[in-house]
């Protein structure tokens, strides 16, 4: 079993900011695990501008923003970056097991920072009834298919939910020459940034239905159409308000969930409704020396705040280590 001062799980903006900050606060033995082939996390697929306005006072794209942190991280030899390294098991005493091609490692860190980000809420979590054809995508997956793989998921899309990812994808589909038939939002207002509603939906004249929900998905092999119904203040269907929209693609953008299965496994108290760790103070958990930062701590709207708060996690880990000595 390898001993380490600090292990950080997740090489997105949160994990990188925490690593750099821990180093700057005196930690000299850091292992950063990232399951992907690159650092950068979700930013790699966010090729639109709008990042860094607060943190760098500049308007950057996602990959540009990530790149600043990647350069910094890679320039510090004391941060040992291990890519394609997937943390699979975490114990109460912080013993961590990870897997990479050709290797299974068990490490025993003195302190640990989890920065595993979020996953998307799915169609299944909001229980949209109907059939289960192809063409129903979490919006982030559709973003990856277009921006990273160069594939067009569909030609006539409806977007469920007006979260930022959904709004951004509405514009992306249009720019790719596909049609966006509607954005359907069950609440009376958007959860996304106002600027995204204007720039990604309103400016293109895409219909946005507030107070409506998708009540059925139809299609045997591929999505053929959806059914929409208006809802009242209690989210009950308004009879007679149903209508159908023909489409071949449904993008689901109904929020993110912190990925905290590992800390839950270790016995950290996790809030059932938000999946965030129960926490008295920013980045802290019920296990001393086990910190969580970035989107796995809570869902942030913008990456600038992720970086700012993750710097604090790095410092907390450094202070915890000093306290051990």
């Amino acid at each position: 079993m390898v001993e380490r001062d600090l292990v950080i799980v997740g090489g997105g903006p949160a994990g990188m900011a925490a690593a750099v900050s821990a180093y700057e606060n005196g930690v000299k033995d850091i292992l950063l695990l990232e399951r992907d082939q690159h650092l950068g996390g979700i930013l790699n697929q966010c090729i639109h501008p709008g990042f860094g306005i607060d943190y760098f006072n500049e308007i950057l794209t996602g990959p540009e923003y990530a790149d600043r942190f990647i350069k910094k991280t890679e320039s510090i030899p004391q941060i040992d970056v291990s890519l394609q390294s997937f943390a699979v098991h975490l114990e109460n005493d912080k013993t961590l097991t990870y897997i990479k091609p050709g290797k299974l490692e068990i490490v025993r860190p003195k302190t640990i920072i989890m920065a595993t980000g979020c996953r998307e809420r799915t169609r299944e979590m909001i229980h949209i009834p109907g059939t289960r054809p192809s063409g129903v995508f979490p919006a982030g997956l559709a973003q990856k298919l277009i921006n990273i793989e160069g594939l067009l998921p569909g030609k006539d899309a409806v977007i469920v939910g007006s979260g930022d990812i959904g709004l951004i994808m509405a514009r992306r589909f249009l720019l790719e020459g596909a049609r966006v038939k509607a954005v359907i939002e069950i609440q009376k207002e958007t959860r996304g940034l106002k600027r995204n509603v204007v720039q990604c939906v309103e400016d293109f004249g895409t219909p946005l239905y507030y107070g409506h929900k998708v009540s059925d998905i139809y299609g045997k092999d591929r999505v053929e159409k959806i059914r929409v119904v208006k809802v009242d203040e209690n989210f009950a269907d308004v009879p007679g308000s149903e209508f159908e929209i023909e489409c071949d693609t449904v993008l689901i953008s109904v929020g993110l969930i912190p990925e905290n299965e590992l800390i839950e496994m270790a016995g950290v108290a996790v809030d059932k409704s938000t999946n965030s760790p129960v926490s008295e103070e920013l980045n802290k958990t019920s296990i001393p020396g086990l910190f969580v930062c970035g989107n796995s701590y809570k869902v942030y709207d913008i990456v600038d705040s992720v970086s700012r708060d993750s710097v604090i996690a790095g410092r907390l880990a450094a202070e915890y280590l000093k306290g051990l000595k």
């Binding site: 054809p133 192809s134 277009i146 160069g150 594939l151 067009l152 998921p153 569909g154 591929r222 693609t249």
Partner: peptide
């Protein structure tokens, strides 16, 4: 039930 419609 193809996953994507076309290559961009």
């Amino acid at each position: 039930s193809e996953i994507v419609k076309k290559d961009r």
